[in-house]
Design a protein around this nucleic acid. Structure first.
Length: 391
RNA sequence: GCCGGGAUGGUGGAGCGGUCAAUCACACCUGACUGUAAAUCAGGCGCCUUAGGCUACGUAGGUUCGAAUCCUGCUCCCGGCACCA
């Protein structure tokens, strides 16, 4: 499968107006201009966010132009039904610093030296009311009402603020202003992205493309999200990445290969066949974890993470590299004190519980009494937390 | 503007004067099992110097021997009606 076919199919939810049209454009001689918009509040990204970034990189590799848009103006308006997403007004400095953080992580997937970065406030804030009215004329309420979310809100009586309706228009104008040929985003962005098509069509009679990509499921199978605690973050240590990948359900192995790695489809198909032929999923999952960790860190880190995982988690050995705690000989001889002080437990009640339930060990011996004192050795909580006590 | 409903732990959601640190579910943690997991099973899940104590049920007061539960003010949500260029 060549790069273009891979680009058009892998992890793709939908292409508007159609796959073959986009394929023709990509195979043609003209360079196309693609863009991805991000929220200026984004700082940390997870493996799921990497999906569109990989798409952009493929386009770069194919010789096309990529624009990265920071939605610093669009962030002024938002969905008022979701109290979580209260939108703070950010200063220029904050936006810049957020993006620097973001970029540092996103660079693992995308070569920013070949990407143009723009802020949509630079054009949106200068629009006059008259121009906004003109833009609004390209849309109808009917379009909005047809949307599933709007229907739901209307039926349930949830109020919808009018600025919410402006959101797609602003985003659409971005596409028009950039004269973009293709916009990439998640499946939830389809409507907003289509607004770009609408404007491009009406204002300059151009047929722009929209590609929505699918999400990578979280480690528990639900959508990968910050609040679920099921995300693999790009800032996670190699050991964490490896461990998190190993903790996924077997059913997610192939989806993770597809969404979370740059391996070719052919290679992934081989893994799929191996799985179906009865090979131990654990071994394949290790290859997966190795691959993902390599891409996020390095080949070397990945191998040592694998070693760490096999020793610590599978063979329940004490890892070599664990923090020290120097016993001074007084109050800190108490297990409780140490557990709390070194954050192995969040409170002393918590620490007491862990001990009562047999989760705390000293040199492999379960500590059964929370009042007991401690001697030099290795203290462990559960199978992942360790502390070396030294005299 | 009028009328009515509501605000409880990480989340949803019980409780409606004492037996409430608060049913239950989800999330989470520990243990068992296993191929690391997942699934399943068992236990736990405010804090502390734990046969006890302390702080909590939007917020500020009040009634009461006693309140998450009753009353009042405030803040914020939500629904119905009216009005509407």
């Amino acid at each position: 499968m060549d790069t273009i076919s891979d680009f058009l199919t892998r992890n793709v939810n939908n292409i508007i107006p159609g796959k073959s049209e986009l394929e023709n454009a990509l195979r043609g001689s003209r360079k196309i201009k693609a863009y991805l918009g991000i929220d200026p509040t984004s700082t940390n990204i997870h493996l799921g966010h990497a999906v569109p970034l990989r798409k952009l990189q493929s386009l770069l590799d194919l010789g096309h132009q990529v624009v990265f848009l920071i939605g610093d103006f669009t962030t002024l308006v938002g969905d008022n039904s979701d109290k979580e997403s209260e939108r703070p007004i950010l200063t220029e400095e904050q936006i810049a610093s957020n993006f620097a953080t973001y970029q540092a992580q996103a660079s693992k997937f995308l070569d920013f030296s070949r990407v143009e970065v723009v802020h949509n406030s630079s054009w949106l804030k200068n629009l006059t009311f008259g121009q906004v009215v003109k833009l609004c004329q390209a849309f109808t309420l009917n379009d909005y009402i047809g949307r599933e979310i709007m229907k739901k809100k209307l039926n349930s009586g949830t109020s919808i603020r009018l600025d919410e309706l402006l959101y797609p228009i602003m985003q659409g104008y971005d596409s028009y202003y950039l004269d973009a040929d293709l916009q990439i985003g998640g499946p939830d962005q389809t409507f907003n992205m289509q607004a770009g098509r609408t404007l491009q069509k009406k204002l300059r009679n151009k047929d722009a493309f929209v590609m929505s990509v699918d999400y990578l499921p979280g480690t528990d199978g639900r959508k990968m999200s910050k609040s679920w605690g099921n995300a693999v973050w790009l800032t996670d240590s190699p050991n964490d990445v490896f461990g998190k990948v190993m903790s996924i359900n077997d059913d997610l192995i192939i989806p993770y290969f597809k969404f979370g790695t740059n391996l070719t489809i052919e290679k992934i198909t081989d893994y799929d066949l191996a799985l179906k032929s009865g090979e131990n999923p654990m071994d394949i999952k290790k290859d997966l974890a190795l691959q993902i960790t390599s891409e996020l860190h390095s080949r070397q880190d990945a191998f040592s993470a694998k070693t760490y995982f096999e020793a610590t988690i599978q063979n329940k050995e004490t890892p070599a590299d664990i923090p020290d705690y120097v016993l001074t000989g007084k109050d800190d001889l108490k297990v409780l004190t140490i557990l709390v002080e070194r954050k192995l437990a969040s409170s002393s009640s918590e620490a007491r519980r862990l001990i009562t339930q047999g989760g705390v060990k000293l040199d492999g011996q379960t500590i059964s009494d929370y009042k007991s004192e401690v001697h030099p050795g290795v203290l462990s909580v559960g199978s992942r937390k360790f502390l070396r006590l030294i005299a």
